[in-house]
């Protein structure tokens, strides 16, 4: 594997250089938030960030996406597709938890029986550069409980690790190696690698927040009906903050937006927290109240995904914990379930 050392102040320059030729998404400071945004002349990348407010899943799975267009003509319907304008894309500086989320999303969108071309095209076109967490950014981080690590190559094509004086760049995949030209010529030595291993160990130990994510699976298997489910949702506002911030939430809705004889079929994010979620045309909704919707949220992440793909659909980034307006804490919910 190719490994190089880059000067710490060179990172911004590298991202900007790439942005001249490719579409580069990077963390950008916008007022009080750090958001993943395509770099333009006015958008300066900000790598001294903790984690972005929004999850970078939107690069592959945008909030709104055109699936197809149609026009009603006297000779019948004419269908067309929207061309993908983004081309070669780089996702620069994602945290390892978010890179892990791509692996989880791949399991669903790029699987044996169903291949989502919209997602796969963007995913194949994109090189993921992970910026490892030499120090866990938040006290609410719990990646180690959900099969993640603060310094990890999971889901990454290139991993950058702050080893003190420099960044160690590891080119994990051939896709990553293709971008090696942007990273200078300084080869990494064994000292850098040892240093990285030490940092990785230290960072892992620094994750203090832990949840029994694996332990709750057998309990969830047997407790679809349980009085506990009535105790979570009382104060839930039924807003979509948790699911919209979540790197792994991927439920979507498909709708047609028509104007005269032209129409587009769009796919947009849905949220299990919304009252419209799974509401049927008849007016019936199998998940009739927030209680059932909350059960779905927990079950989907910690049971159904495990059943279907043998992986927990949570990466421990803590965004939902920090962003929930009424402080519904998934860590506490899982903790409480483990004690049932």
């Amino acid at each position: 594997m190719e490994k190089r050392l880059i000067k710490k102040d060179a990172l911004v320059g590298i991202a900007k250089k790439m942005a001249e030729e490719l579409t580069v998404w990077a963390p950008v400071k916008k007022e009080d938030n750090v958001l993943f945004t395509p770099l333009t002349k006015d958008a300066e990348p900000f790598f001294a960030y903790l984690n972005s407010k929004n999850a970078p899943k939107q690069v592959f799975f945008p909030h709104t996406e055109t699936l197809m267009k149609y026009t009603r003509t006297p000779k019948g319907m004419v269908f067309s597709a929207e061309e993908n304008k983004a081309g070669k894309t780089v996702l620069f500086g994602v945290r390892p938890c978010d890179a892990h989320s791509f692996v989880l999303l791949d399991m669903l969108f790029d699987q044996e029986k169903y291949k989502d071309q919209y997602y796969i095209t963007k995913r194949n076109n994109t090189t993921v550069i992970t910026l490892a967490c030499a120090e866990p950014p938040y006290a609410t981080c719990f990646c180690t409980s959900v099969d993640g690590e603060p310094v990890s190559a999971d889901g990454a094509d290139i991993v950058l690790t702050d080893i003190g004086s420099e960044y160690l760049a590891e080119f994990i995949t051939p896709k990553g190696e293709k971008l090696a030209k942007y990273f200078g010529e300084t080869k990494a030595d064994a000292v850098a690698e040892t240093k990285k291993k030490e940092i990785a160990e230290k960072a892992k130990k620094a994750i203090k927040s832990k949840i029994p994510a694996h332990e709750v699976k057998p309990i969830l298997d047997n407790n679809f009906e349980h009085p506990f489910w009535a105790t979570i949702h009382g104060k839930c506002l039924a807003c979509g903050t948790c699911t919209y911030m979540c790197p792994t939430c991927h439920c979507f809705d498909i709708s047609d937006e028509a104007k005269a004889s032209d129409g587009v079929r769009i796919r947009s994010w849905d949220s299990c927290m919304f009252p419209l979620f799974t509401k049927e045309t008849s007016g019936h909704n199998p998940r009739i109240s927030q209680k059932e919707r909350w059960r779905q949220r927990v079950m989907h992440k910690f049971k159904y995904y495990v059943d279907n793909f043998n992986a927990i659909a949570c990466v421990g980034c803590g965004r939902c914990v920090m962003s929930c307006p009424v402080n519904i804490d998934i860590r506490k919910i899982i903790e409480d379930i483990s004690k049932l």
Partner: peptide, 24 residues
């Protein structure tokens, strides 16, 4: 442009109590 349509504002508002919001 910052708005992500999560509806948190509407949901938190005591005056927003329509059984079905026009948005839906």
């Amino acid at each position: 442009e910052k708005c992500i349509r999560c509806n948190a504002c509407r949901q938190a508002c005591p005056s927003c109590y329509c059984p079905t919001c026009f948005v839906e």
